[in-house]
Amino acid sequence: MTTKDVSTQETAKDTDFAIDGHGDISVGVHGAGASGDGSASATRITPGNALRPEDIALEIQRGQVKPTEDVAEFALRIGDDGLILAQRLGHWISRSPELEEDIALGNIALDQLGHARSFLTYAGAAWGKSEDDLAYFRREHEFRSAHLFEQPNGDFAVTIARQFIVSFYQFELYTKLMESTDATIAAISAKAVKEVDYHRDHSAQWVLRLAGGTDESRARIIQGFKLVWPYVEELFEDDELTTRLAAAGVTVQPSSLRAEFDRLTGDIMAEAELEIPGVPQSLGGGRRGKHSEFLGYILAEMQVLAREHPGASW
């Protein structure tokens, strides 16, 4: 490193910057052109403090937490929902209607992926598998995501309609899961609920704007809702697993979330002067591994590289 130090020493002194190691830059800005002093800076950055998938992996490793088979199966469902949605939303980055929206959708995708990683990491502990084992080496019928999350992005209106349903559903779910008797599920949900709350706001803002914007945008959001609404019912279906877990206080029956979902989405829809589409509800089946045609393509793309190099570390 000596030669490099010689070559950058002068710069460091001249610029109040030090280039160190591989690109780590300590930015001590003192000269003119700086935006205020350090403590008042609008660019002061911190990593923050929140539950991360890595923390859960660590707890698993130490043997501090291990989900029951049922809890793992349940975590797989919500984890897969987030994963597939993040995969869909990630496609928007560099393609959004405006650069600001690239960032907004990117944030939402990152939130969803974060939740997915936490839930999948936790689920995997039941079977000695990592988040990546579960994401990259399961086959289509082993995924537990609901059909709504697999629906194509379509135009921006379809994506917003999907986001609207997803975020209001997830908000109700995570709110209840914060009181789960399973401490890990409760902790992940407590982090997720705040993020999903913002997703609600984001989608509601856009539903109002698209519905109340131009004739074209209104026609498109109506069409968008028509395309995704058939997949609402599946989200609120109870089955044997949820019945057992509800009895144990791990989760609530999905059907119990419906009334509040209807009320809150109904408020926004009414304000936007949109009607709930009268479309037949799809039979679903995602929770049992029965998926739409779309999932196969999503997985083919997502898994291709990891499967080319089984056992590799990245």
């Binding site: 998938p53 990630g90 496609h91 690239d102 990117g106 990152l110 992926l113 990683r117 590799a312 990245w314």
Partner: peptide, 19 residues
């Protein structure tokens, strides 16, 4: 490469970077 990132951690990092 966002949709094909070979691990979920790398996928998060790449998405954040492009964003």
């Amino acid at each position: 490469w966002i949709t094909r990132a070979p691990s979920l951690k790398r996928k998060s990092i790449l998405m954040a970077k492009v964003q």
